[in-house]
Computed example of a mutant assay.
Amino acid sequence: MNRRDLLVWLASWAALPSSVARAQETVRPVIGYLALGSPESRRPFVNEFRQGLGENGYVEGRNVAIEYRWAEDKPERFPGLADELVRLNVDVLVTAGGTAAALAAKRATPTIPIVFTAIGDPVQEGLVASLPRPGGNITGLSFFSPQLAGKRLELLKQAVPEARLIAVLLKPDSMPENVREPRLKEIDASARVLGVRVLVVEARGPEDLERAFAEMSDGRAGALMVVATPLFVIERRRLAELSRRTGLPAMSEFREFAVEGGLMTYGPSIADLNRRAADYVAKILKGAKPADLPVEQPTKFELVINLKTANALGLTLPQSLLARADEVIE
């Protein structure tokens, strides 16, 4: 080897580490994050997701990138946004917009791994083959637990003991019939145990809400249970206002409803589900396949009570109920 060749070889060798570093930088994994709301409304949940990633050794901007797509409270945008993330060829796609977002992602790609953060019954809704063996390219976390509807009714009855008829607000097209009918039968059975009757009231869109509350008032309902759907999550402030205006104490599933002025909520912590979704993402980035990762059901539930709303409705809540609350909003 002559002197010139030696210098060229040494120069190439010296440049190798930076070339490798650049190569490693270009192949850092990319996570697609498809959400119902906006960056502002989803910030607490995104922070929990990032925290979960950090606990697994992944830091956004350092060794992982995240591509966000926001539906801005318009579920009809999910298919187009999911297609965008698929065209980017993300390494894993996280959905945070209920069944609609998860179905949009599943229809958009049969190969990119998908992790959903909060789904009712993913088996009955056609997302996975079974909870222990999801199959396909999708897995994640369910917020459904068979005893939850009965527990919500029980808590609502404790808050409003004089209620003899409880309205159930439902968006009928938010779930397939094979999911909706068993859910309603479960609610009805729980109500009979508590000695109350159920009035099912349907609302398919925002334009139906005024009519739905008028129907509840005409039926002399004493309290209301809202079955959470993307529409009712979007309209949670208006639902809370309508419940206060009509004097109807209202219960729903997620904390955000109570924050906006609903009387109370009982259900899994959405923040916790987002943090646990990061565990799935980390496992997939390290080589696990969604088909082999069981769908998890909720393990942490939170009772949130808005005492200011209770006072506005003229309710005196029993101290035993307040003592059970994870959070009391005053």
Score class of each variant (00 low, 15 high):
79 P>F: 01
144 F>N: 08
84 E>I: 02
179 V>S: 11
116 F>T: 01
25 E>G: 13
255 R>L: 10
274 N>G: 10
207 E>L: 15
170 L>T: 03
74 K>Q: 12
275 R>P: 07
159 A>Y: 07
73 D>K: 12
67 E>T: 00
27 V>Y: 12
130 S>D: 15
306 N>R: 09
173 D>A: 01
228 A>R: 01
325 A>C: 07
197 R>S: 06
87 R>N: 14
257 F>C: 11
112 I>G: 02
249 P>E: 01
217 S>T: 13
185 K>Q: 13
297 Q>E: 10
324 R>D: 01
147 Q>D: 08
1 M>P: 06
140 G>N: 07
98 G>I: 07
272 D>F: 13
100 A>E: 10
81 L>C: 09
79 P>H: 05
168 V>Y: 02
234 I>N: 12
5 D>Y: 11
297 Q>P: 09
177 E>R: 13
134 P>E: 13
112 I>W: 01
95 T>P: 02
223 A>C: 12
121 D>E: 15
64 V>H: 00
182 P>E: 13
31 I>V: 04
83 D>I: 10
204 R>Q: 15
62 R>S: 14
212 A>H: 03
9 W>Q: 13
9 W>N: 11
14 A>P: 07
248 L>R: 00
193 V>R: 07
313 L>E: 00
83 D>R: 13
97 G>Q: 02
180 R>A: 13
293 L>H: 08
135 G>N: 08
114 I>R: 00
14 A>S: 14
328 V>Y: 03
243 S>R: 02
264 M>W: 03
